[in-house]
Every structure is written in C-alpha cells, then in structure tokens.
Computed example of a mutant assay.
Amino acid sequence: MTGDIGEKGSCTTCAYTEVDFSNYWTAVMYFRHENGSYKRVPQYPNAQLGYEGQNATDIKGGMTIYYTQKDFDTNGDQYITAFQPGFRMTVGSPTIDTLDGSKPGLRYTCLQTILTRGFETPDFPDKPCPAGIMAIHHFPACWDGKNLDSPDHQSHMYSTTKGGFREAGPCPASHPVRMPQLAYETMWNTTAFKDMWPKDGSQPFLWSYMDSKGYGTHADYVFGWKGDSLQRAMNDSCMFHKCGSPGMQGVLKTQTVAEMNKCAVQNTVEENTEGWLDELPGQKMGMAFRA
C-alpha cells in the first residue's frame, strides 16, 4: 500500500482512534508436532493494556505497539520528529540463520507469567514457557531526513538501538534525524502445546517461513497516523495511558475495547491456515524460504 494510509483507513484496532491507522506486521508462529503436522499458535493480549474500565483480556490479538521518546521512565528533552505520510520501514531479515547475524532489539522472552519482562534471548526458548513466548521487535530510530522509503526498506534508517526499551545511541551524521523508538511486543500463547514437546527435547516452534531458530525474525511498519497527531504526542510530556484513555483526558482521543474489536480485515487467503496442517501455508506456492 502506498500514499498516506492514514487518510484511507476507516477503523483501527488500536486504542487511539481517529489517529492511528498505521499497518503493523510480523510473521505467524507455528508449532511443529513430532508427527510432522503444523498448527498455528494463537496470540493473546498484553495484560499491560488494561486501563480504566477496560479489561485487557477482552482485546482481540496480541501485538502491543510502543512509540517512545527515550525510555520507560522519562520522555527526555530531545526533539523527536514524527514519521511522515508515506513513510515505511522493515527490521530484521528472513534470510538470517546464524547467531552472528542476529540484530540487537530482535529478541524473545520465555514468559513465566503474563507480566514477565526481561531475560531476552536472540533465539526461540529451548524449553516450554509457562505463559507463552513474547516476540520483540525494536525498529531503528535514526532517519536520513530525506527518504520515506528505500529499495530494501531499511537503508533510509540507521539503528543505534540497545534493546530492552533503553534509550538508543546517538544518531550518525548520515542519519541525523531522531524519530520515535518504535517497538512491537507480540504475545504468542504456546501453553496448549506444553504436553506435546518433542521427546528428543528439540525446539518445536517456527515462523511461517520455516525458521525454527528465530534469528530471521522480522517486522514491517507503514506509518498511518492522521494529521499531526503523532507529532503532538511526541511533543507532549504524557506517557502510556496518560496520553489518553476513556475517562482520562489526554492529547490523543481513544476508543473502548469493544470498539477496537469491531475493526477487522476480511480474510482473503484461499489456502487453509487453521487446524492441524500437513505443511505450512504457502509451501505449495513456493513461498517458504528455507527448511
């Protein structure tokens, strides 16, 4: 999709309504059974998303999006330039299959509880996780100040991220413009498979492009905030729900969980992707990258 998608969207699954129509994407996680069949791992909502009068467990989906100026403790005093209409970028690559090639900020957390944070690894957890697996994607925050995109969707940005929601390092002269530190947390509910762990102890989860190591994890972003709404948020000193939530006045307008859940995209995939599958979706079309 090209152009200003913020002016094309009619609804959003995000808490902030009338403003955030951005596109957020990551690959789908699957479980591979010992008998060779596959099943899609469901997502579940981040428990941190509940706010006044709203229950996080009612939210459909499991991706949380963060736009931070500095870190989780303060906004800092540096001016943050919001993404511009037509801006897009990706992070990570499905072709990376070694630890040496893994990038800072692309990590996994084996959730001991739904509130577990920290203890990040660059590859899939090697044992069953009591509350599932959280996949984390930290995007670069340094822009060249000129290009809204690049042929590889990455060269117009430069990463100084340190991961863990710490403040990224200074931007280089080639990419001098500081933008929001964008990050995804995706909660994958692997608990249904805890009693199906392979007898040989091998790690049974993989991404939809046949990556069972996890080093190739990647994510896409297409900016779609309306007007100057994101810039106003970056200019404000608010953090988290204080930027706006039902019953709490803030710089951004919000919607209820029920209103979020009404927004959905019609499924246009012709291939079966649910239940136990003999092979991953897309393999018949030659879309898998590697075994």
Rank of each mutant, 00 (worst) to 15 (best):
residue 241 H to F: 12
residue 40 R to K: 15
residue 51 Y to D: 14
residue 164 G to M: 01
residue 105 G to C: 13
residue 281 P to F: 07
residue 81 T to W: 00
residue 288 A to Y: 13
residue 239 M to A: 08
residue 32 R to S: 03
residue 69 Q to G: 15
residue 240 F to I: 01
residue 252 L to V: 13
residue 248 M to H: 10
residue 206 L to K: 06
residue 130 P to K: 09
residue 228 D to R: 06
residue 178 R to N: 14
residue 47 A to V: 09
residue 98 T to V: 04
residue 252 L to R: 10
residue 124 F to I: 00
residue 103 K to M: 15
residue 80 I to H: 02
residue 49 L to I: 05
residue 148 L to Q: 05
residue 12 T to I: 01
residue 246 P to R: 03
residue 169 G to F: 14
residue 96 I to Y: 10
residue 226 K to N: 14
residue 111 L to R: 00
residue 253 K to E: 15
residue 207 W to A: 09
residue 55 N to L: 08
residue 131 A to H: 02
residue 183 A to K: 12
residue 40 R to V: 03
residue 52 E to M: 10
residue 284 K to I: 04
residue 39 K to E: 15
residue 80 I to V: 06
residue 91 V to E: 04
residue 185 E to N: 06
residue 200 D to Q: 07
residue 197 W to K: 08
residue 126 D to A: 14
residue 176 P to G: 11
residue 195 D to S: 07
residue 108 Y to R: 01
residue 141 A to H: 06
residue 88 R to H: 15
residue 283 Q to V: 12
residue 6 G to K: 03
residue 92 G to F: 15
residue 242 K to H: 12
residue 191 T to Y: 10
residue 156 H to T: 12
residue 114 I to S: 02
residue 279 E to G: 05
residue 209 Y to K: 06
residue 290 R to L: 14
residue 111 L to D: 00
residue 105 G to A: 09
residue 229 S to W: 07
residue 107 R to K: 14
residue 49 L to F: 05
residue 267 N to S: 07
residue 220 D to N: 13
residue 70 K to S: 15
residue 63 M to H: 11
residue 76 G to Y: 06
residue 144 D to P: 01
residue 208 S to E: 14
residue 191 T to E: 10
residue 214 G to Q: 07
residue 142 C to T: 13
residue 78 Q to R: 08
residue 269 V to S: 01
residue 137 H to D: 13
residue 264 A to D: 13
residue 228 D to W: 03
residue 209 Y to S: 14
residue 32 R to M: 05
residue 62 G to C: 09
residue 108 Y to K: 02
residue 27 A to F: 13
residue 168 A to V: 02
residue 138 H to D: 06
residue 84 Q to R: 11
residue 203 Q to R: 13
residue 125 P to V: 02
residue 75 N to F: 03
residue 247 G to H: 09
residue 21 F to S: 00
residue 67 Y to W: 11
residue 232 R to Y: 06
residue 270 E to P: 00
residue 45 P to K: 00
residue 214 G to H: 01
residue 274 E to F: 10
residue 130 P to V: 07
residue 203 Q to Y: 11
residue 1 M to F: 15
residue 213 K to D: 04
residue 11 C to K: 05
residue 106 L to P: 02
residue 245 S to L: 06
residue 263 C to I: 07
residue 201 G to A: 04
residue 266 Q to Y: 10
residue 180 P to S: 14
residue 90 T to I: 11
residue 147 N to K: 00
residue 117 R to H: 04
residue 172 P to T: 12
residue 84 Q to C: 02
residue 47 A to D: 07
residue 148 L to C: 05
residue 93 S to A: 07
